[in-house]
Design a protein around this nucleic acid. Structure first.
Lengths: 168, 168
DNA sequence: CTAATCTTTCAATAGTTATTGAAAGATTTA
DNA sequence: TAAATCTTTCAATAACTATTGAAAGATTAG
């Protein structure tokens, strides 16, 4: 397989996987391209390579920077901005976990806490079922939140090493 | 907070969270309603409670059954089918992990394996960067795949207990 | 200061995904 | 077997999300 073909397939695979995870396809494709490119790329190059518009490129690059997955790079003598992705997959993973935790898990926990305050007629079968399920979800999400907190701080080899021991 | 209001908020929160994860909002709302309802519900009741059409109800219920999160229930003397959700959140989580692993991680691993076969000119900076990144992603995803395999088989209290020890 | 170059915005548009509801298909009852 | 009841399908439509590209806004160079 030729390099260009392989790149193209990786970009397309990464993009379609992303849509299954509620992530913008183009954003994922830009990320994919940056992941497999050693040197910083300009916006114009991204537009060219992925056949996307200026607006889309700009917006999605900004989003990637916002997620902490891509950095702006200034190249001396160049007026344009260039972009470079973090290549260490463990760091990428940690960063995504960190962001999604902040954006989704934490707001969810707040809602669940509020929902505990439902008027509890303990004889009512419906009310009982509701509070039970909410409580269980809350415990679960709380536990996951704490665990992910540790994961975010963890070193990769340490993490896998221990996880392997744990699950064997 | 009244029970009905709490239910409504849970359903709406679950639904909007789902869209962020590439999951159909209505499917998640049906799931949410079934999660907090102790007794089996008929399709007509779901349509009524969530204000959705027959077609949508039918399609999304089927999808939930397909994901292994909801069961059809026959109630003696009734002609209609009724539906009941698995309430154990750990089981729900395991089931979702199992399905997503099968649907997404495994196909991704296959693609990554193919991409290893890129014509490797080791002097080429571009080619080197590509194969390096792909290799790292492959290792990472492979490791995650194995770990999730174990998670899917794990008992809840055992899993959290050990995880807590691991990350402390 | 002015022109040139680069970045950002945003309203229009295209593309994608989900929903509807009526009709067809099944199944059960009598 | 026929009628009644329930389930599934699917083409039309609606709702949502992403993309485009031209124009405005910044920044840098001369």
């Amino acid at each position: 397989m030729k390099l260009e073909a392989a790149k193209a397939q990786f970009i397309q695979t990464w993009g379609s996987l992303a849509t299954q995870w509620g992530i913008n396809k183009t954003m994922a494709q830009i990320h994919a391209l940056l992941l497999v490119t050693p040197d910083p790329i300009s916006q114009d190059d991204l537009m060219e390579e992925l056949s996307i518009s200026r607006g889309s490129a700009n917006m999605n690059i900004r989003e990637l920077i916002d997620w902490g997955l891509v950095d702006r790079v200034i190249i001396p003598g160049e007026r344009k901005e260039f972009f470079l992705a973090e290549k260490d997959i463990w760091k990428v993973f940690r960063q995504i976990v960190k962001e999604r935790k902040k954006r989704e898990l934490e707001p969810l926990l707040k809602v669940l806490q509020q929902l505990q305050a439902v008027e509890g007629d303990k004889k009512n079968r419906e009310a009982k079922a509701f509070t039970d399920t909410i409580e269980n979800i809350q415990k679960f999400v709380g536990q996951a939140d704490k665990s992910l907190d540790s994961l975010v701080k963890a070193d990769e080899s340490w993490f896998w090493g221990n996880l392997i021991k744990l699950i064997k």
